Computed example of a mutant assay.
Amino acid sequence: MLDHLVYSTPDLAGTVDELRERGVDLVPGGPHDGLGTRNFIGPLGGSAYLEVVGPDPDQPAPARPRPFRIDELTVPTLVTWAVATTDIDTTVARARAAGHDAGVPFGMARRRPDGVLISWRIAFPVTDWDGLAPVLIDWGDAPHPSGGLPGGTRLESLRATHPDPGGVSAALAVVGAELAVTAGEPGLVAELSTPAGRVVLR
């Protein structure tokens, strides 16, 4: 089940302004302390949401590269997607037994603008198939970020291309994810409908 899309950018403020002008209603998410990043989030319909993530100017540069390719990007990019699971350890073990290393789950947290600290567990796939193999996320008892988001933006379609669509599809199947994958250069494409019109993220 789609949890969220990850749209990375080297210029968080600029990208948020641009998306808002195009009709995507984004609200502050919060900083990821120690990673040098912060995010804004917006609705995609249902319990899915869009995460726009980039460098946090209020944090020092981290010792390690920022996640989601932020430090290597020159333009905003739809880098990956996240799939929700209620038992991340079992999902990871099942995937590994089937030949896909979905990563090692670890804890993360961020403080929302209202002061509430939310935490979750996440696993980044070792072989991510150019961002098409999803990140796994388990919110546990934490309030889901989609709760209380403004309406108006919906995800109309999500599709992918890759030189090895069969390999990608196999990696998706073992974590219970579904995504249309066709042959082509690696990439994710999301089409959104907004009050201002259609928005395509790549």
Score class of each variant (00 low, 15 high):
Met1Tyr: 00
Leu2Asp: 11
His4Leu: 13
Leu5Arg: 02
Thr9Glu: 04
Asp11Cys: 05
Leu12Pro: 05
Leu12Arg: 02
Gly14Trp: 08
Val16Asn: 04
Val16Gln: 01
Val16Leu: 01
Asp17Asn: 12
Arg22Thr: 01
Val24Cys: 00
Val24Pro: 02
Asp25Ser: 10
Pro28Asp: 06
His32Val: 06
Gly34Trp: 09
Gly34Lys: 06
Leu35Asn: 06
Gly36Val: 01
Arg38Met: 11
Arg38Lys: 14
Gly42Ala: 10
Gly45Met: 02
Tyr49Leu: 03
Tyr49Glu: 08
Leu50Gln: 12
Val52Asn: 04
Pro55Val: 04
Pro55Leu: 05
Ala61Asp: 14
Ala61Lys: 12
Pro62Ile: 11
Ala63Phe: 05
Pro65Tyr: 02
Pro65Ser: 13
Arg66Cys: 10
Arg69Pro: 00
Arg69Asn: 11
Asp71Tyr: 07
Asp71Ala: 07
Thr77His: 14
Thr77Asn: 14
Thr77Arg: 06
Val83Trp: 12
Ala84Tyr: 03
Thr85Asn: 05
Thr85Pro: 13
Thr86Phe: 00
Thr86His: 01
Arg94Phe: 02
Arg96Tyr: 08
His100Trp: 12
Ala102Thr: 02
Val104Asn: 08
Pro105Glu: 15
Gly107Trp: 00
Arg111Met: 11
Arg112Leu: 14
Asp114Glu: 09
Val116Trp: 01
Ile118Lys: 00
Ala123His: 02
Leu132Glu: 14
Ile137His: 04
Asp138Met: 03
Trp139Phe: 08
Gly140Leu: 13
Asp141Arg: 11
Ala142Trp: 04
Ser146Tyr: 13
Gly147Cys: 10
Gly152Lys: 11
Thr153Cys: 10
Leu155Gln: 13
Ser157Tyr: 03
Thr161Gly: 01
Pro163Tyr: 12
Pro163Arg: 04
Pro165Tyr: 04
Val168Ala: 06
Ala173Thr: 13
Val175Tyr: 04
Gly176Trp: 09
Leu179Trp: 03
Thr182Ile: 11
Ala183Lys: 04
Ala183Pro: 00
Gly187Phe: 07
Leu188His: 00
Ser193His: 09
Pro195Cys: 09
Ala196Cys: 11
Val200Leu: 08
